[in-house]
Simulated assay, not measured.
Amino acid sequence: MASEGLKARRRSDYGFQLEYRTRWSDNDMYHHLNNSVYYYLFDSVVNTYLIKHCALHPPTSPQIGLVVNSNCTYLAPIEFPAIVDLALRVNKLGKSSVTYEIGVFEQGKDEVMAVGGFVHVFVDRDTRRPATTGMSEALKRGLQDLVSHKASL
Results as ranks from 00 to 15, higher is better:
His32Pro: 13
Val104Asn: 04
Lys109Val: 07
Pro58Asn: 03
Phe118Asn: 07
Val84Asn: 12
Leu6Thr: 01
Gln144Ser: 09
Gly5Phe: 07
Gly108Arg: 03
Met113Asn: 12
Ala2Ser: 11
Leu146Ser: 04
Val45Met: 11
Val84Pro: 13
Ser97Cys: 07
Ala131Met: 06
Pro81Ile: 01
His120Val: 05
Asp126Gln: 10
Ser25Lys: 11
His53Glu: 12
Val147Leu: 14
Gly15Ala: 00
Ser152Val: 11
Ile83Trp: 04
Ala2Trp: 00
Leu88Met: 13
Ile64Val: 11
Ala82Asn: 11
Gly108Pro: 00
Val46Met: 08
Ser61Trp: 03
Tyr39Glu: 13
Arg141Trp: 02
Tyr100Leu: 08
Gln63Leu: 02
Ala131Ser: 08
Phe16Tyr: 10
Asp126Asn: 09
Gln17Trp: 10
Val121Asp: 06
Leu50Gly: 10
Ala138Tyr: 02
Ser136Gly: 07
Gly15Ser: 01
Asn47Met: 05
Arg125Trp: 02
Gly65Ile: 01
Arg10Tyr: 03
Gly117Lys: 09
Val37Glu: 09
Met1Ser: 12
Ser3Asn: 11
Ile83Leu: 09
Leu153Trp: 03
Arg125Leu: 01
Leu66Phe: 14
Ile51Trp: 12
Lys95Val: 07
Thr22Met: 08
Val37Gly: 13
Asn47Leu: 04
Asn91Trp: 00
Leu143Val: 06
Phe118Tyr: 02
Lys150Asn: 07
Leu139Gln: 05
Ala2Gly: 14
Leu93Asp: 00
Ser36Lys: 08
Leu146His: 05
His32Arg: 12
Thr127Ala: 09
Lys109Gly: 11
Ala114Trp: 05
Trp24Ser: 02
Leu50Cys: 05
Thr99Asp: 11
Val121Cys: 10
Ser136Met: 04
Ile51Lys: 15
Gly108Asp: 03
Leu56Trp: 06
Val46Gln: 14
Ser12Met: 09
Tyr20Ile: 14
Gly103Lys: 08
Phe16Ala: 01
Leu75Pro: 06
Lys150Val: 13
Val67Asp: 14
Ser44Met: 10
Asp124Gln: 05
Arg125Ile: 02
Glu19Gly: 15
Thr22His: 10
Ser36His: 06
Ser152Tyr: 12
Val46Tyr: 05
Gly134Phe: 01
Arg23Trp: 13
Thr22Tyr: 13
Arg21Val: 10
Leu18Asn: 07
Thr99Cys: 06
Val67Leu: 14
Ile83Asn: 10
Thr22Ser: 15
Met113Ser: 15
Thr48Pro: 09
Leu41Pro: 12
Ile51Asp: 15
Val112Phe: 09
Gln63Asp: 08
Val45Tyr: 06
Leu18Glu: 13
Val90Thr: 11
Arg23Gly: 06
Leu153Gly: 02
Asn27Val: 01
Val67His: 13
Lys140Val: 03
Gln17Val: 15
Met1Ile: 08
Ala138Met: 04
Ser25Asn: 14
Gly117Pro: 08
